[in-house]
């Protein structure tokens, strides 16, 4: 299989087809945990060792500091990407554009992250209520 193109922002991703990981996947879904790449592991993550090598870490939902900062990191990237696309800091968008920004972020899964409403509101310079209000207007 061809090597994935190296992406500077993502260290060696987790291989979901690894026998150990595919065996653990259903369990992880049940406990709402997730795999993290060895390079992204924090102190609270559980290392999964296979043949003497750490193939991934498990991040459990009950480890908030690591999980939260990771989530904010990924969400932060979504916000940065959107600002790059639009060519302006999100906080400087006009009202209608902020509404559109919320819609785009929702389409990109931004609101599945923890602390998402808070983080998005901060980036846009609006209250959380405003974010909810926009979300409710997108017809969901």
């Amino acid at each position: 299989m061809a090597e994935q193109q190296a992406r500077p922002n993502e260290t060696a991703a987790v291989d979901p087809d690894h026998p150990l990981l595919s065996a653990l996947q259903p369990l992880l879904e049940r406990v709402q945990g997730r795999f993290v790449a060895p390079d992204d592991m924090g102190p609270a993550d559980v290392p999964l060792v296979w043949d003497g090598e750490v193939v991934a870490g498990v991040r459990l939902p009950s480890s908030p500091p690591a999980a939260a900062s990771e989530a904010v990191g990924d969400l932060g990237r979504l916000l940065e990407d959107l600002a790059d696309e639009l060519g302006v800091p999100l906080s400087q968008l006009a009202r209608a554009e902020k509404q559109r920004a919320v819609r785009l972020l929702e389409e990109r899964g931004a609101f599945t992250y923890r602390k998402s409403a808070e983080t998005v509101a901060e980036a846009l310079g609006v209250s959380r209520f405003t974010v909810y209000n926009y979300l409710n207007r997108t017809g969901s």
């Binding site: 709402q32 009950s62 908030p64 409403a117 808070e118």
Partner: peptide
């Protein structure tokens, strides 16, 4: 007990309980 889900109230609950060690 951790609040599950994406609802606003669940998000609030998690924040409030974030100081509670597990």
């Amino acid at each position: 007990e951790r609040a599950e889900g994406r609802g606003t109230d669940a998000e609030f609950s998690r924040e409030e309980q974030s100081g509670v060690s597990t």
